[in-house]
Nucleic acid binder design. Structure first.
Lengths: 189, 189
DNA sequence: AGGCTAAATGTTAGTGACTAACATTTGATG
DNA sequence: CATCAAATGTTAGTCACTAACATTTAGCCT
């Protein structure tokens, strides 16, 4: 029998309980005020078990599953465009192709992230991986590697900033915030 | 007599010794392998004294004194240009106006930073402040605040990435690396 | 030179994120 | 129901960083 890759149902349940409990505590008291020990005891597990399900405290808030999709769409953009425009266009296309996430949940996470300098750093760190995926796609499409890397980093930093701005507000649609950022990054503003 | 603002000579000497010792240790063993305790004992001081001179371990590597200058030059760029181009132009102008730093020292620091994920995060975090300074200058010059913030974040992320790329190489002049990044960010590529 | 005072440094004790090694429980499966 | 692996627990430790309080050092005035 091959090694079990998919997590057990039990494991998945524990993980979900940790996440749920932690986000609620963060939203109420602030990320930095809630220790891992407090989360663990609220869930009814040991600290050690927490770290078996999440590699770090910040992994509770920072997560970013869209990289491959964005890389794919960026790779398909017309090569004549400047790099920034190709990436922005790819992000726009990927956004249109993905099921719209639950804005309330995303906003909760991003608000938590925006409120803590520690977490803003971790969030930016996470964009490094998105940028790398997109860089690779551009290079595969013939772009110069250093230029691709710089352009991808810049666009994702800008998009991340737009998400943080959006999270802080109540009067803005997620799609509009994204579109505004992409316009800036395409040089339209 | 007014309160002494400037640090004492003794304090400045201690600070310099810490910095020197630490950078040498980092360059030899890697940032994450060198504990604060090790730095302190190499210098011949207590850990506590270390933290009196530097707020955190990463402050030894991450430092960034050019913000006001860049904000000033960005504020002077022609308002008709797109935001990215204004900021890129301002960075270019500021770079021309500043005494060229000792490339070897800068490279050492950036190499240390590039080699550790922790530190790359801290470096990016530090660019947040540059971006804010420039954002304020743009807003003062009439730009829309959210757009300015996104553009500034993107440009500084790109420039930072260019510096990290440069540090990894031996065959590239600092000015050329910067110029290449600015060209990308202006949409010229 | 000799003492005064403030800045610099040291000591001790603690918190919080994380890790390693090893023991125990739990649950699905034959 | 016995079994075996996955999940969890326990204990002990490291490292960055902080707080409170004691001690030393160095410039300065008489």
């Amino acid at each position: 029998m091959p090694t079990e890759i998919a997590p057990t149902a039990r494991s998945a349940r524990t993980r979900a309980r940790i996440l749920e409990t932690a986000l609620a505590l963060f939203a109420e008291h602030g990320y930095d005020q809630v220790t891992v020990g407090r989360i663990a005891s609220a869930v009814g597990i040991s600290e050690m078990t927490f770290f078996r399900h999440f590699p770090a405290k910040d992994a509770l808030v920072v997560d970013d599953p869209y990289d491959p999709l964005m890389a794919e769409h960026v790779g398909r953009q017309p090569r004549e465009l400047p790099l920034l425009a190709r990436i922005a266009g790819g992000v726009r296309a990927a956004w249109g192709a993905v099921p719209q996430p639950d804005a309330a949940v995303v906003r909760t996470r991003l608000r938590i992230a925006a409120a803590s300098p520690t977490l803003r750093g971790a969030t930016r760190q996470a964009t490094e991986e998105s940028a790398r995926a997109v860089t690779d796609a551009l290079v595969a499409a013939g772009a110069e590697p250093v230029e691709a890397r710089i352009a991808a980093t810049a666009v994702f930093a800008g998009v991340t900033e737009a998400l943080l701005v959006w999270a802080e507000r109540d009067d803005l649609a997620l799609g509009d915030a994204l579109e505004g950022a992409l316009a800036v990054l395409e040089g339209a503003r």
